[in-house]
């Protein structure tokens, strides 16, 4: 009798609950996989057919698959030899060209100015955001009086909470004029304005992660430094900052990732002309802004459409790699650092 009482019972509810929870948890994984698959899928016609206008012929795709890598090379080679005939086709040459004119008579899909544009604006944003965010984080953790600390926390939360379209709007209307009045250049909207506006969105990220990294520096370390007679700033500069370096590095990487992927701010504040120029004060067009501005007007399945997806794939891959490095870096280096290995 007692033996039966303790016998394992089959609880259907428990089993179902666990299964359902596990399957739903699988959703995030499925989504990230689907994002990979479906964003890349729409770029395929670029690689697998010399002329994407005829993309609805399954036979052709099958044929191309048997070619494998050589097929792509062949297409690329062909376009090299007869580049005049191939204008308007997303050939390798065309894609790596320096002109982005997707809707002209002979469309040019050179993504080089877009890639460089993204880098340029992101670089300006990060150059602005990094010193300000790190110094401010150092301020709150090492120097600030209590009232200032309590002011910084909500301020950062507010800045992080401002929708990017609002920052873009502010940059478009106020910031652009302000900066133009200071420097007096020709184009109101340009890479510099976009970069500065973008830094507003990047600062909270770098600040928060840096502050987090600094607060993880063991108290014993700072106390030891102060006890040795080092002043506050010496401790901050020579003890706290170096100890928090891996975290700060990750913060900067994530900041770059955010800047690179941000759309609305750059769409509204950079002027959006795909120009190849070294000047800071001329308009640029970033990858994300290109997608944002053109995707709504493009014909589904056309080369232009596929190229926009290709740009999206590059964006995705780039931020993916940045995030992965940031995560790896923080986890491993932080652990090693404080375990004394």
């Amino acid at each position: 009798m007692p033996k039966n009482q303790l016998k394992k019972k089959f609880r259907l509810g428990e089993v179902i609950a666990e299964k359902v929870v596990t399957i739903v948890a699988f959703f995030s994984l499925a989504m990230i996989t689907l994002i990979f698959v479906f964003v890349f899928r729409e770029t395929l016609p670029i690689f697998f057919s010399g002329n994407a206008e005829v993309s609805s012929v399954p036979v052709q795709i099958e044929q191309q698959e048997t070619y494998g890598d050589e097929g792509i090379q062949e297409v690329a080679m062909q376009s090299k030899t007869s580049s005049h005939d191939n204008e308007g086709i997303a050939s390798f040459d065309n894609l790596t060209g320096t002109t982005w004119q997707p809707v002209s008579g002979t469309p040019k899909f050179g993504i080089v100015p877009l890639v460089l544009g993204s880098f340029k604006v992101s670089l300006i944003a990060v150059l602005f955001a990094v010193p300000i965010a790190i110094l401010a984080a150092l301020f709150t953790s090492s120097f600030a009086p209590k009232w200032a600390k309590e002011l910084m926390k909500p301020a950062i939360e507010i800045l992080a909470g401002i929708p990017s379209v609002v920052i873009g709007f502010f940059a478009l209307i106020v910031l652009a004029s302000l900066i133009q009045n200071i420097f007096g250049y020709q184009y109101r909207l340009n890479a510099f304005v976009g970069g500065v506006a973008l830094s507003f969105a990047v600062i909270p990220i770098i600040y928060s992660i840096t502050e987090d990294a600094i607060s993880r520096v063991p108290r014993s370390l700072t106390e030891a430094s102060l006890a040795l007679g080092a002043s506050k700033w010496e401790t901050a500069l020579y003890v706290v900052l170096p100890a928090a370096t891996p975290g700060i590095f990750a913060a900067v990487l994530l900041g770059i990732g955010r800047a690179f992927g941000e759309t609305m701010i750059v769409l509204m504040a950079t002027g959006n002309a795909a120009m190849l120029t070294a000047s800071l004060f001329e308009p640029v067009r970033t990858m994300s802004a290109t997608i944002g501005a053109e995707m709504a007007e493009v014909v589904f399945g056309e080369t232009h459409y596929n190229v926009l997806f290709l740009i999206g794939s590059i964006l995705f891959l780039f931020t993916f790699v940045l995030n992965a490095i940031a995560e790896l870096f923080v986890r491993q280096r932080m652990m090693k650092k404080f375990q004394g290995i």
């Binding site: 009482q5 303790l6 016998k7 394992k8 019972k9 609880r11």
Partner: peptide, 8 residues
């Protein structure tokens, strides 16, 4: 193995 922890 056959014991039900919950019942236990």
């Amino acid at each position: 193995e056959a014991i039900d922890v919950v019942e236990l």
